[in-house]
Each structure stands twice: as C-alpha cells, then as structure tokens.
Amino acid sequence: MLTIDQATYDAIVAHAKRDHPDEACGIVAGPEGSDRPERVVEMVNAAGSPTFYEFDSTELLELYKEMWARDEEPVVIYHSHTATEAYPSRTDIGLASEPGAHYVLVSTREHGNNEGPVEFRSFRIVDGEVTEEEVNVVAALPS
C-alpha cells in the first residue's frame, strides 16, 4: 500500500495537469527505508513528449547526489499518461529500475489541463512483474 499525504498527492496531480499533453514526471523522496514520501521533486521531461518521459541525465545525477547527501531514496516515482489509462505500459515495465519504489501513474486523458478528477494509481514493478497496490491518501503522514 502507498500511504501519501493530501498535499503531496495534490502536487503530483497539479504537475500532471500543468504539463498535459506532455507526460509529466518526478519523484517523491523520503528517508532511506522509511517508506515515507515526503519531498516532491518535479523533474523536466527531457523527452518533451506526449508518449515518453525521461529524466535529463545531468539532472538525474544531481537528484541522486542530493538524495545520497540527505540519506534519502526515491519512495515514489511518478509520471503521467495523457491519452491512455494509468497503468504501466510495456516500456514502463521494461525500464523500471527501482524495485523498492512505488510507481505512481496519473492519467490526464479525461480532463487534460482542466479541473476534474484524474486516475491516480500505484504499482510495484519488480523483475518485470507489476503489482497494483492500494493508495491511501491521508491528511498528514503519521509522525
């Protein structure tokens, strides 16, 4: 199960809506081993594409160095699908490289940049195997 606070959830959804029709991507970092998604880091989609996303390689290194310095890890890795359902594609599965992370997918296919509900789903992707998990949105993470 992914437990995520409302503000972080809202930030991911807002990012996905803002970047529609391109795919938005980013991570939520948290203390290593804590499973607490605490710090949203929006990333630029270097692919700038409605069907593909990729973190810029230089920014990727900066991001990881910052996390290592803070003893953090990517607790959530999120991206949006802008014309299809919020389910990992074959590409997503093939390229998933953080077996400990929650892979969050948001689909903006219904309302695009506008107000309105989105699909927000979370998955584990390990060795090519996808397992959907429940998303528990809380007012604040337990201290």
């Binding site: 692919a47 390689s57 990881y64 890795i77 299809t84 390229l95």
Partner: peptide
C-alpha cells in the same frame, strides 16, 4: 564513477 539507470518510460 557513478552508474545510474535512466528514469524513463512511456505510454506506448
């Protein structure tokens, strides 16, 4: 030397 897998994917 640092090795990092790309963080990438797509809808197709």
């Amino acid at each position: 030397v640092v090795v990092l897998p790309a963080v990438a994917g797509g809808s197709v």
